[in-house]
């Protein structure tokens, strides 16, 4: 008769093995997606169709949130900066925080909840209604036909969405800072331009959003593909997609920032 202690240890072991197993399955799935990507590039209209549903349909939420985030940054930044008499640095603050951090991260979080959850629900439902099995019966590889185009559409649209978010945010900061509060327009732009470096800030921001795009889309696809084929299973998988990919974005952001911006004053 095992004691409670042994039972507890057993449970920990069981959980560890299970999560390792899932990680292994997820990695194999990811490699399979990459291996079957070639055929989806030979039929680009599949990717274009998915670009429409992941990219174009996320446009409104990305643009509107970018504008508002930029406007709030402008207001809060002005409030703090004017205490030190350096409200001309508002442009620098808005642009750097958007291009380096907020643009990629917030756009990716919105992307995970807008497009990632939709991908998971769609693929999970396809699995639940046995559409994926039907494809296999017809000798069509569901990973090449369904999963890979969605993966590349997500990876391609994420950097574009993040760039639009940042651009809208800078515009929002400009609206509030220059038009509403009355910071000098010339120093707003010129200080911004002298402080934001193309290589250091903008390219690194784009690299970040690219990595987030890979992470979010891969997680969403795997959760959908792995979902139990029931209504409950699909809803659980959708929730897991949003939670896991949000955590992945924030953790990856920390790692990427540590690599990109260390050794700088």
């Amino acid at each position: 008769m095992p004691s409670r202690f042994v039972k507890g240890v057993r449970r920990i072991g069981h959980r560890t093995i299970n999560s390792l197993l899932r990680l292994g399955v997820a990695s194999r799935f990811f490699v399979l997606v990459l291996l079957h990507s070639g055929s989806s590039f030979r039929r680009p209209h599949l990717i274009i169709k998915e670009l429409f549903s992941t990219g174009v349909l996320s446009l409104i939420i990305i643009l509107v949130s970018g504008l508002f985030v930029g406007m709030v940054l402008g207001m809060q930044g002005y409030d703090t900066l004017q205490r030190y008499g350096s409200e001309e640095a508002l442009g620098v603050m808005v642009a750097l925080s958007l291009v380096r951090e907020l643009g990629p991260v917030v756009a990716a979080l919105l992307f995970a909840s807008r497009a990632g959850s939709a991908i998971t629900a769609e693929i999970g439902l396809m699995k639940a209604t046995e559409q994926l099995s039907a494809m296999e019966m017809m000798a069509v590889n569901p990973i090449a036909r369904v999963v890979a185009p969605r993966f590349w559409a997500g990876v391609l649209s994420m950097p574009l969405l993040a760039a639009m978010f940042s651009a809208m945010g800078v515009f929002g900061g400009y609206l509030v800072g220059v038009k509403l509060i009355g910071v000098d327009e010339g120093s707003f732009w010129s200080q911004m331009q002298s402080a934001v470096d193309f290589q250091q800030d903008i390219v690194n921001g784009i690299i970040k959003s690219f990595v987030f795009g890979v992470a979010v889309t891969a997680i969403a696809l795997f959760e959908g593909y792995d979902a139990p084929p029931t209504a409950e299973g699909v809803s659980g998988a959708t929730t897991r997609t949003v939670v896991t990919s949000s955590l992945a974005i924030l953790a990856l952001d920390f790692v990427l920032t540590a690599f990109m911006f260390r050794g700088e004053g």
Binding site: I48, K49, L51, F52, G55, V56, L59, A95, V99, S157, P159, L160, L161, A163, M164, S166, A167, M168, V170, W189, M192, Q193, S194, V196, D197, F198, D201, I202, I206
Partner: peptide, 30 residues
Amino acid sequence: TIDLWVGLFVLLGLGAILVLALKVGNLGGV
């Protein structure tokens, strides 16, 4: 229609990168 929208989307995204590079960054300046 899908092609048109996706084309617009890609153009907008590239335009945003261009704006960031030229207006926000210092690629066009010194």
